[in-house]
C-alpha cells in the first residue's frame, strides 16, 4: 500500500517534469518563431517545438500511461511527427529557394568558400 503510493508519486513527478520541460521548450520555440529575423532562421524555431517540445510532452504522457496500448499509440504519433516534420521543413525551404527567396547571411560568402574547401580537400 505504502510502496504503491511512493511509486505513484514518483511517476507523477517524472511525468510532470517531462511535461513542464516540454512546455518550456515549446514556448521557447514559439518565441523564436516570432523573434528571429527572417524566414530561414524561423525554421529553426519551428524545429525546436517540433522535436523537443513534442518529444518531451509525449514522453511525459507515456510515463503517465504506463505500459499499455495508449503508450504504443503515443510512440507511433511521436514517430510520425518526427518523420514528417523534417520532410515538410525541407520541402518548405526548397520551395522558398526555388521561389527566389534568398537567406540573409551573417557570415559572408561562406557557401563558395566552403565548397572550394571541400572540393580541394577531396
Amino acid at each position: 500500500m505504502f510502496g504503491g503510493e511512493i511509486y505513484e508519486t514518483i511517476v507523477w513527478l517524472i511525468s510532470g517534469g517531462l511535461l513542464i520541460s516540454g512546455s518550456i521548450f515549446a514556448i521557447i520555440g514559439g518565441i523564436g518563431i516570432c523573434r528571429l529575423p527572417e524566414f530561414f532562421s524561423r525554421m529553426h524555431g519551428a524545429g525546436l517545438t517540433d522535436t523537443m517540445g513534442a518529444g518531451l510532452i509525449l514522453a511525459g504522457l507515456m510515463v503517465q500511461a504506463g505500459l499499455s496500448l495508449v503508450t504504443f499509440k503515443l510512440v507511433i504519433i511521436l514517430f510520425f511527427v518526427l518523420v514528417t516534420s523534417p520532410s515538410s521543413c525541407h520541402a518548405l525551404a526548397r520551395s522558398a529557394i526555388a521561389h527566389g527567396l534568398k537567406p540573409q547571411l551573417d557570415v559572408p560568402n561562406s557557401d563558395n568558400q566552403n565548397s572550394n574547401q571541400t572540393s580541394g580537400g577531396e
Binding site: A26, F39, A54, L61, V81, S85, L92
Partner: peptide
C-alpha cells in the same frame, strides 16, 4: 511577410494541435 512564413506557422500550429489533442 512572405507566404512561406505563413505556411511555416501553419505547420507548427498543426503540430501543436496534435499535441493539444493528446494532452
Amino acid at each position: 511577410p512572405t507566404v512561406f512564413d505563413r505556411v511555416l506557422s501553419l505547420n507548427m500550429f498543426g503540430t501543436k494541435t496534435v499535441l493539444l489533442i493528446c494532452v
